[in-house]
Design a protein around this nucleic acid. Structure first.
Lengths: 345, 345
DNA sequence: CGAATTGTTGACGGAATCTGTCACCATTAT
DNA sequence: ATAATGGTGACAGATTCCGTCAACAATTCG
């Protein structure tokens, strides 16, 4: 094998096995130790960060970084990657060990000059924004690792009742009615994380909660601390639950058919502005139809358990929506609005 | 220079100048044409997509793709890049020519096996979601290019009055009061895009509007078509406006000090749930303070022009908020709630 | 300490490769 | 037709590469 090819292969091999011995590679490539040594030195000069230790149990290691083999990207592909990673800068916390900005820097610096020019031209012309939040979520990495390995954690959570029950992801917050109070004192509970996801700039963690004996969604910025469960609670079988099929385990909403509790038929009319306000809600997209005049209709089902949540939602839409049925919901919205009105008279 | 180094340098050179002749490179590297030819063939075998044409004005070209030189990424960096790009899959439309999924595929395939394993383990455990929208925005690339080159476009826009005025980005929708109607008929106007940005799953395009003689924000999915202005309207000087300083040109809100119109002092108290609902609003973060019991206060200024917008917003919060001053706002919220209540009696 | 393991360096000659030259062909624009 | 440009094959000489050997250094383990 010619040297140039061997070097490239060596680069990949070395990256695959992070630790190795010279003799090992020599056998693998069918060349002498001396040659491998020479090659390794060359790789080193080319930027592969190798570190070696003599002695028994010694050997070579790729130390902090790994070298990606050359990749052929379209100019457009490189640009999309750049802006995708750039979008992450809006997040205060990320679950990955290293700053994404360092990756971005490296990527940018290695791009051929003219692609760089193109990116510069686009830099202040394209953005994928996420609401910037002040609250940090320090435990993301711990939660993520626990989810991957299926471990049980003990967490301190800010709001024992209300938030735990209610935080079901951005828009659906409050889907399950809970007794709300001013409980901000952290409570301790054991959970087994299923995964983490960011929505609208906040991180959420669906997890099996051993306290409530069921799956709940936690807001990661409210998790004050997370550590391996000291009681050694054995992990339960999550039956293949993960983020991909998460929806199935969430409280019912109009598009998801039968939730818990009897479901009633929902009909509501919307002004054009009402349509605009409903479009962002992912749990409504299926129920929403837009009329030619810009207004719209919502048609679906509302589980009896969630009347409270729906009432608040429609009250929030104010005059941009009018619930036609079910009657209970109309009544609930009316009560909701009257309670609000009480603040202003 | 040893061949191995020459090959790597050649790879980069070839990527810098996308078109070149063999003789040119031979001179540059101080070797013979024959050698360069051999090298080029090798690069070709290594995956660099070269294309050549004989004859005068012929020469070599790097055809569709470019090869990035080897980059040293931390394992963590590679993982962040993966999930950043993966997050883009939620978008129906992107302004880049090529699918970001192809970039992701390539990236994934070239990763060393164990990093790939790590990603696989995380795949259903981490997500950065964006509300999936049904509406496509077909003109993104056109708008972006016009913004980069400072060109004037003629667009067909769905809602001549309401949406043009109101679409000021996700949360601030409706910040400027406009006469809302059921106008869904597309209107034609000339604009000069400043940039495009995605917020909450929808694409927006701030642009100078020659019809309204000022900067407006357009929702890209409502732009039915966009083409170079046939009237040849000369571009205006945007005075360095771009996405980075966009905020300065937006209608005032509590944190941005003096808007147009006299500003009144705003004070409102929030329940803990109210705090939760206000936290996501970027334009409120400065005004919001959280009390130890979980409740909160909003303190800032409200421009007289925006009373209508604020009234709607607080009406939407329902009983989770109580405006204390100014009195005009209290009165406006009350009227808002009463109008809503009229639908339910 | 001494033995074993592993990396590090230098030297050298033979083997393998790379390179330049030259000759000739193919394609295309002018 | 002519000139410009890429493409290929062959071959000898130049260069690099490679294996072997030898000596040394650092570390672990008994």
């Amino acid at each position: 094998m010619p040297k140039s090819k061997r070097l490239l292969e060596l680069m990949m091999t070395v990256n695959r096995k992070r630790r190795f011995k010279v003799q090992e590679l020599a056998d693998e490539f069918g060349v002498s130790k001396r040659t491998i040594l020479r090659d390794l030195q060359e790789l080193s000069e080319l930027g592969v960060p190798l570190y070696s230790e003599p002695g028994p149990h010694g050997g070579y290691q790729v130390v902090r970084e790994r070298v990606l083999p050359p990749i052929a990207f379209t100019e457009g592909e490189a640009v999309s990657i750049f802006f995708a990673v750039d979008a992450l800068r809006h997040y205060v916390s990320l679950p990955f060990e290293s700053e994404s900005s360092s990756a971005l820097d490296k990527f940018y610096r290695h791009l051929p000059g003219d692609v760089r020019d193109r990116i510069d031209a686009m830099k202040n012309r394209v953005d994928i924004v996420t609401p910037r939040r002040r609250r940090e979520a320090p435990c993301l990495a711990v939660l993520l690792n626990a989810a991957i390995d299926g471990r049980v954690l003990r967490i301190e959570y800010e709001s024992a009742e209300a938030a735990a029950e209610a935080a079901v992801g951005g828009a659906i917050e409050g889907a399950t009615e809970g007794k709300r109070g001013s409980k901000a004192k952290p409570g301790v509970r054991s959970i087994q994380p299923i995964g983490i996801y960011a929505s609208n700039g906040l991180w959420y963690c669906p997890a099996y909660c051993f306290l409530r004996e069921g799956v709940r969604v936690f807001r990661c910025d409210r998790i004050r601390s997370a550590e391996p469960d000291p009681a050694g609670t054995p992990p339960i079988d999550l039956e293949g639950r993960h983020l991909g099929n998460r929806k199935q385990y969430e409280p019912g909403h109009p598009s998801s058919g039968e939730g818990d509790g009897a479901a009633g038929k929902l009909r509501a009319s919307l002004t054009p502005e009402g349509v605009r306000r409903c479009e962002p809600e992912p749990w409504l997209t299926e129920a929403l139809s837009v009329l030619p005049d810009g207004g719209g209709m919502l048609e679906g089902r509302v589980p009896a358990n969630d009347i409270g949540f729906y009432a608040r939602f429609f009250a929030g839409l104010g005059r941009e929506a009018a619930v036609l049925e079910p009657a209970e919901l109309r009544e609930a919205v009316r009560r909701e609005l009257e309670r609000a009105l009480a603040h202003y008279s």
